[in-house]
Structures are given as C-alpha cells and as structure tokens.
C-alpha cells in the first residue's frame, strides 16, 4: 500500500516505482489529485500492470495488478 495523498507529482510516481521494484504482483496506491492519478497509471501501464481506479470523496485508490 502506497499512501501518496496530498503529494504532488512526481513524488507519487516515485513512491509507486519504488514499491513496484520490490516485485509485487498487486499494489494499491492512494492519491488525491487527477495529475497523480494519470501519472501513476501511465507508469504502471508502461510496466505491464493493469490499473483499476476507485474514487471516494475526491480520493483515488488505484489497484495495480500484473
């Protein structure tokens, strides 16, 4: 679980990258702005993950699975 709420890009992307580097097949990332959502999604897709997004009160939970 990566909690990147309140953080501006590229930090959410950086945190996600570090987590993915550990080799997990499924990672949850929480962000609270659209730019971060798009950028984390772009990174995950470029690394072969599929991304499911759940939105709640302006916060997004991204589930990345391989």
């Amino acid at each position: 679980m990566v909690d990147a709420r309140g953080l501006a890009c590229p930090i959410p992307v950086l945190m996600t990258q570090k987590e993915l580097a550990k080799g997990a097949d499924s990672v949850e990332v929480m962000v609270d702005n659209f730019a971060a959502r798009e950028n984390v999604t772009r990174l995950a897709e470029s690394k072969g993950y599929t991304v499911a997004v759940k939105e709640e009160n302006g916060e997004f939970t991204l589930t990345l699975t391989k």
């Binding site: 890009c9 590229p10 992307v13 950086l14 990258q17 950028n39 772009r42 990174l43 470029s46």
Partner: peptide, 14 residues
Amino acid sequence: AGGIRDSIMFNQWN
C-alpha cells in the same frame, strides 16, 4: 520542467 524531469526520472516523454 516536468517534460525534462519525467524523461530523466521515468523515461516518460509525454
């Protein structure tokens, strides 16, 4: 700044 930063950090060229 993001254009150059992301290309260096993540190989993202968007």
